[in-house]
């Protein structure tokens, strides 16, 4: 049986993302990759923690951060996590259109998060002259938050690519694992953000 046929209720396995060998590999491979990503971000967090007070006379975290914006960004990203859960829920019920819809909302939320992040960086650079060359704190801040932002960019491109690619083909055992792995990756981005808003922004405001 080819994996590329759309699924109907009769051919629908319990979990289409893990019904094929390729699906299982992708599922496990992505999780293992996330294990490595944990260490990757830990190194960036570590660097940030070691350098967060090394402002070299430049602006400090208290001067820069505004919690309202960060709170909004957090809400956007958390909600996008929930919408991707909704999308996977519809995948399991073999409702392709609703799945695409919810993933579409996820992409929009991700894009608005990204927009706010770009706005935030632009604000620091133009209003405070705070760049990654300003101080070790600046380098570490942009490295950590920028790395996360890079992950968001990559995730969004990935999502849009598979959504466009499969828009007319419907759900199949070939593409279900791709959506599922994306979902896991997206949650992980959220996990990292939870620590970023806590460690970078909230602790940065406390001092």
């Amino acid at each position: 049986m080819s994996h590329d046929h759309s699924l109907n209720p009769e051919t629908m396995p319990e979990d289409p993302a893990k019904a094929t060998m390729e699906g299982k590999h992708k599922f496990l491979g992505l999780w293992i990759f996330l294990g490595g990503e944990t260490v990757l971000f830990a190194c960036l967090f570590g660097t940030y923690l070691a350098l967060r007070n090394s402002t070299a006379g430049g602006p400090s975290s208290q001067d820069l951060f505004g919690l309202e914006l960060v709170f909004l960004m957090t809400l956007l990203l958390l909600t996008s996590s929930l919408t991707s859960v909704y999308a996977i829920y519809h995948m399991k019920n073999n409702n392709f259109k609703k799945m695409q819809l919810w993933f579409g909302i996820t992409a929009l939320l991700g894009l608005s998060f990204l927009g706010l992040e770009i706005y935030e960086f632009a604000h620091y650079i133009t209003d405070y002259g705070f760049t990654f060359r300003s101080s070790a704190f600046g380098s570490a801040f942009y490295a950590l938050v920028g790395f996360h932002g890079g992950h968001v960019v990559f995730g969004l491109s990935w999502l849009i690519a598979i959504m466009v690619r499969n828009a007319k083909r419907g759900l199949s055992l070939y593409n279900a694992p791709k959506y599922n792995t994306f979902g896991l990756y997206w949650h992980f981005i959220d996990v990292v953000w939870v620590f970023i808003f806590t460690v970078v922004y909230l602790m940065g405001m406390v001092g």
Partner: peptide, 22 residues
């Protein structure tokens, strides 16, 4: 199970890294 092993392995190393840098 394998997944949890990998994530907790990652968390363990992450923890060591953070402790070190603090």
């Amino acid at each position: 199970e394998i997944v949890s092993g990998m994530i907790f392995g990652g968390i363990l190393v992450a923890f060591l890294v953070i402790i070190t840098f603090v």
